[in-house]
Amino acid sequence: MDAGIRNRRIAITTAALLAVAAGPAMAQTKTLDTVKARGTLNCGVNTGLAGFSMPDDKGQWTGLDVDLCRAVAAAVFKDATKVKYVPLTAKERFTALQSGEVDMLSRNTTWTMSRDTSAGLSFVGVNYFDGQGFMVKKSLGLKSAKELDGATICVQTGTTTELNVTDFFRANKLNYKPVVFEKLDETVAAYNSGRCDAFTSDHSQLYSERLKSPKPDDNVVLPDVISKEPLGPAVRQGDSGWGNVVRWAHFAMVNAEELGVTSKTVDEMQASANPEIRRLLGKEGDFGKGMGLDNDWAYQIVKQVGNYGEAFDRNVGAGSRLNIARGQNALWTKGGLQYGMPIR
């Protein structure tokens, strides 16, 4: 963490306190109108997680979470580039959303009950089904997380991870010692230098960090999955209209994959006779208007960002260095959990 980020964190906290303290005018206005008037979408993303949200060598943000920001921008502005990415640490993210600094959060955030009911947030979907696990040095020769009795474990603060790992060790009557860092980079650096026996996080994050580590082959991700981590986008509570926009941007991508509509075929698909495709692409019905958008909202998403399968492959799947299997994130028709609610 450098001084700039620290200062910004203080600024965010202060802004949050002031925003909550400020007059009651704030949350009354509709986020969609605010976003349209501003001309850009402020999207809260991870400070750097390969495959999900990370700037590439040209400084362009890429990743599965970033693609959801782009999809919303495509639906609202017909231009997927009109996004201002706000990188947030785990600790800052909710305050940034609550205070209005970002319009939506697409930052590998676990949907939990307390976040829905007491943090002023509304989760609107799951764009990646994940689970927590452990990465250890291969030289330890471990086969299961149950062999971690007495281990020192590096963990990032502000996450469900910190609680799950405690639950896991309590349930199995094992001991461990946490070393808790604020930022992912320091957490991983401490693990890599041998301060901890294990690094715990969501599996997707473990694969991503393993790839980034100096010697990927020296590390293994243990097979145990110790928690359910449905990661998804969130918006502020009390603005269901805006929640619909983000929710259906995600479902549009999943539906497009179900219907076989890709960024390459979407133009010719406009002539399709299939009523489901016609509704998705705005040829029939007024589905976009209902959200305060144009009816080609989903066409723009698929054209500019692609369907869910394309985004997955490009960022975390077979077409990326991470090479994560679809698994639970396959379509429901292929044994996975991704299920696009019907557009009708």
């Binding site: 590096c154 603060t157 502000g158 808790v180 860092f181 604020e182 930022k183």
Partner: peptide
Amino acid sequence: VAIGYPDLVSVFAGTVLNN
């Protein structure tokens, strides 16, 4: 909090705040 020492800010204004 930056180097993983569990002081007041790390424990209370960090983990507790987030949970």
